[in-house]
């Protein structure tokens, strides 16, 4: 799922400063699951913004809505934005882009979109795929070095891992390559670590402009 985090409230208040009638739109898919922008969080943020604006003597009118997926035109379609000065989207960046394309009013991001990840434990989300467009997981025991190694190293660990097997960067993340090493060893596939991985083709990653995917056979 896409993991996002709510923007700091003061940044949001700053974005909303010039408006007094705004629609908050939550998204009931990824960001609901990661507890950043579902219907519940939309309500919490709206309540907090109203409270802050009341306190500042500049009340704001906020209506709340949540749609199934902000990344789909068909789900956006029924949403009415007439009479609002702006929309604050609690979708991921994709949702913000889509809403901004759809409506002729400013669409503001309520979230900082983070990464594709999984739940490590309830309340803890971790990044596990970079979407690099050139998967190497078959060589690394299913542990992605592109995103789980802070340096995206492809040929083994640097010299920085701690005795606890953590990354030198101090983020508390485990060293991906120690994990890969242990996994491959368990799988009896350590020889795939001894083969040198050639330099990666980063043109398949996001660095070559927006990526698209087309399947001609299913196009309408």
């Amino acid at each position: 799922m896409i993991v996002a985090d709510q923007k700091p409230i003061n940044e949001i208040l700053g974005m909303l400063e010039r408006y007094d009638k705004v629609l908050f739109v939550g998204c009931q898919t990824c960001v609901a699951v990661c507890m950043a922008g579902g219907e519940k969080e939309t309500g919490v943020l709206a309540s907090l913004v109203r409270l802050a604006r009341q306190k500042a003597g500049q009340p704001i009118e906020i209506d709340e809505a949540a749609i199934q997926r902000q990344c789909e035109e068909e789900f956006i379609e029924p949403l009415e934005a007439d009479g609002y000065q702006a929309i604050l989207s609690l979708g991921c960046g994709v949702g913000v882009n889509k809403l901004a394309d759809h409506f002729g009013i400013p669409v503001l991001p309520g979230l900082n979109t983070g990464f594709m990840g999984h739940i490590e434990e309830h309340g803890v989300w971790a990044e596990t795929c970079a979407g690099c467009g050139d998967c190497v997981l078959h060589r690394t025991g299913g542990i992605c070095p592109v995103v789980r190694c802070a340096k995206s190293l492809m040929n083994g660990p640097c010299g920085g891992y701690t005795d606890d097997g953590l990354c030198e960067s101090g983020t508390g993340a485990p060293c991906a390559w120690i994990a890969i090493y242990k996994r491959l060893k368990e799988l009896g596939l350590l020889e795939s670590m001894t083969e040198t991985s050639p330099p990666k083709d980063w043109s398949k990653d996001r660095f070559s402009g927006p990526r698209t995917r087309v399947r001609e056979d299913v196009r309408l």
């Binding site: 340096k151 960067s169 330099p199």
Partner: peptide, 24 residues
Amino acid sequence: LTGDHPLMGDHPQAKPVYDVDSVQ
């Protein structure tokens, strides 16, 4: 060398490159 991660230095906001690694 691979090089220490920017997070350990005086410009932790920097975008790390690591286009290739030390072996490559």
